[in-house]
Write a protein that binds this DNA or RNA. Structure first.
Lengths: 157, 157
DNA sequence: TTTAGTCCGACCTTATTGATCGGAGATCAT
DNA sequence: ATGATCTCCGATCAATAAGGTCGGACTAAA
């Protein structure tokens, strides 16, 4: 229960990888493309592409078009929270259907529902949890495995 | 994202209702049947029946067969946690696919996956959250929720 | 201008959830 | 004991969401 989607999983892996490349000590500053990540983690290329597009649209990463293009983090690893990443892919956090219920679309149970308020408190606690953890917290001490890409070798000095 | 299922919602409502009837001051000790709950909260009867059956099978409530039959809480409201209820309906908590991965069924990303460990810590924090809140907390005053950010504990591997 | 790469949206396939049906078994009233 | 009523429980169906795929348009570097 409470499982996050594969897309969200892929997003976390991809962002962590980009962060490692961008701020790691191997080839700092290098731009990362979709193919590199897909091959490194065995993620279907097209699906990952869509995930990255979504992340770019939500302002978490910047896309650079054309050859030698790819993605870069839009801001520092401490300014990107897990909540932002997950919400960027899966939409706003809502443990129950009525979490973001607008006026006029009440659920059938709402009239006598006594569990909404406590559940919203639980939801809020989970959000704080996810929003207090950043990309930086997910990359400590993890070694970056470099890949042999002709493109990458050409760029790295 | 992270939405719980309708069945789980129904389970929470039903258990709260049973608890109110059983320990409330109107008709204490009365047995509650499926139909009563379904009508009160506009829940499809057969679906609720299956939810209650599952809860009974998991030892959260006791079923009494035949006419004048129905359900009773198996233990006190303070001994039934939200985690127990949700897990009884939706299965064990697992925010990622590999949460309960058995030997030999590694996911394709596992080889280079660096996000598993921090995610498991997040999952553990959510579990504590849900397991520290009981049915009792959903019946009266404001639920007491304590969270502990995994970041503070040093989530990075 | 060519070429490699990203961008974007439509599409399909599968899995999960929500909901339904019909009978078996158990209990109480008569 | 017997019937009527109610819960139990498995099998099944439909709707929705997730996972994954395809083809073409656009962009920038060589």
């Amino acid at each position: 229960m409470l499982k996050i989607s594969k897309k969200a999983d892929y997003a976390l892996m991809a962002l962590q990888h980009i962060a490692l490349v961008q701020f790691g000590d191997v080839t700092p500053g290098r731009v990362v493309n979709t193919k590199e990540i897909a091959e490194e983690y065995n993620i279907p290329l097209e699906l990952l592409a869509k995930v990255l597009q979504t992340l770019a649209k939500n302002g978490l990463i910047e896309s650079h078009n054309g050859p030698k293009g790819g993605y870069l983090l839009a801001r520092s690893t401490r300014q990107i929270t897990i909540a932002q990443i997950l919400e960027g892919i899966e939409g706003p956090l809502g443990i129950t259907d009525c979490s973001h219920e607008k006026e006029g679309e009440l659920c059938l149970q709402r009239e006598h529902c006594n569990i909404r308020t406590p559940l919203l408190k639980v939801q809020d606690s989970i959000y704080q949890l996810l929003n207090n953890m950043t990309l930086q917290d997910m990359m400590g001490g993890t070694p970056l495995i470099t890949i042999q890409s002709p493109t990458a070798q050409g760029v790295a000095q």
